[in-house]
Amino acid sequence: MPLHVPPAPAPALRTVLTALGSPTAVREARTPALRNAQGPATPDLPLPVHVLDRITPAGTSATRLAGWRFLIRCGERAVAAAETRLTPDGWAFSHFFEGPYVTATERALRQAETMTGSYQARLLSVPELYMLTLWLHGDCAADGAEGHPAATDLLVPLAPAPPGIAAHRPHRVAELLPVLTHRLTPTPTPAPLLGSPA
C-alpha cells in the first residue's frame, strides 16, 4: 500500500536538526543509543502526534495536535525519536527519547506498507490508557495536523498496549473506539441506601 507521511512543518524539522547538531543536547539526552550512535543521525518519518482528549456522548473523538515526532535513524534502523511541540513562539524541540515505542512505530509502519488501500500515517495517543497507536487516516491529501479519526480509519496499537488490546493488530476506529470509550468511562459510585449506616 502507498503509505503517505505528511510533511512536517519546516520549523519543527529545523529544531530537530539543530538539536542533533548540538553536542550538548545529544550528550544530555537520556538516550544512550543516540549518545553511542556510530555515524550520522538523521531525522526520518515525521508523524503528527494527536492526543485523544475525550470521547463525546455521541461516540466521536475529540483530538488535538500535540506535536510532531521524528524517528532518528542511524544507518538502517531507528535508534531514538525526537519530539517537537508548538509554543506561542512557534515550533520548539522538546526532547529525545528511546524505548519500545520507537521500535514499535517502525514495525507498525512496515506492517502498514503491506496493507491494501492508501493511508496517511499519524500517531494517536490515549494518555489515560498509556496507549499509543499508529493512526492510518483514509484521506491521504488531508492536512496531517488537523482532523479526527473517521470510522473507517485504522488504529494499530503499538507495543506495549494496554491489557486486553492486541498490539500490532489493525482495528477500524468504529470497532476500537467503543472499547476505548468503555475503558475511559469512570464507573459510577453507587449512592448509599437511605437509612443505612454511613
Rank of each mutant, 00 (worst) to 15 (best):
R14A: 12
L176C: 04
V26Q: 10
P88M: 14
P23V: 08
A81E: 10
R77K: 04
P88W: 08
H50E: 07
H171K: 09
S196Q: 13
A19S: 05
V26A: 09
L71C: 05
H50I: 00
P127S: 05
A145G: 04
R64L: 08
G59L: 03
A80D: 08
V173L: 09
P157C: 12
Q38M: 09
A62C: 06
A151D: 13
M115F: 15
T181E: 15
I72Q: 08
S22T: 13
F96M: 12
D44W: 10
A108H: 11
L45C: 10
A159C: 08
L180Q: 06
E128A: 15
T181F: 03
A80P: 05
S94I: 03
H171P: 07
I55Y: 06
A174Q: 12
I55A: 00
P7W: 00
T56D: 04
G39W: 04
W91M: 03
P163T: 12
W68R: 00
L154E: 06
H148F: 01
E113P: 04
P186Q: 07
L17R: 15
E98T: 09
T60A: 08
R122D: 07
A8V: 01
T114V: 08
L180H: 02
L3R: 05
A29V: 11
R110G: 11
F96R: 04
E128H: 13
P157D: 11
L176Q: 10
M131H: 05
Y101V: 11
A10L: 04
P160G: 14
R172H: 14
G164S: 12
I165Q: 08
A159F: 13
L17K: 15
V51L: 09
P9V: 00
A112G: 14
H4K: 04
L65A: 06
S22Q: 11
A62H: 11
A108F: 05
R69P: 06
S196I: 05
L3T: 02
L176M: 12
S196D: 13
P6E: 01
R64W: 01
P149D: 06
T133V: 12
E175D: 15
L136P: 10
T105V: 10
Y130W: 09
W68Q: 06
L154C: 14
T152S: 15
H182M: 12
S61G: 08
H168R: 11
S196V: 10
A166Q: 15
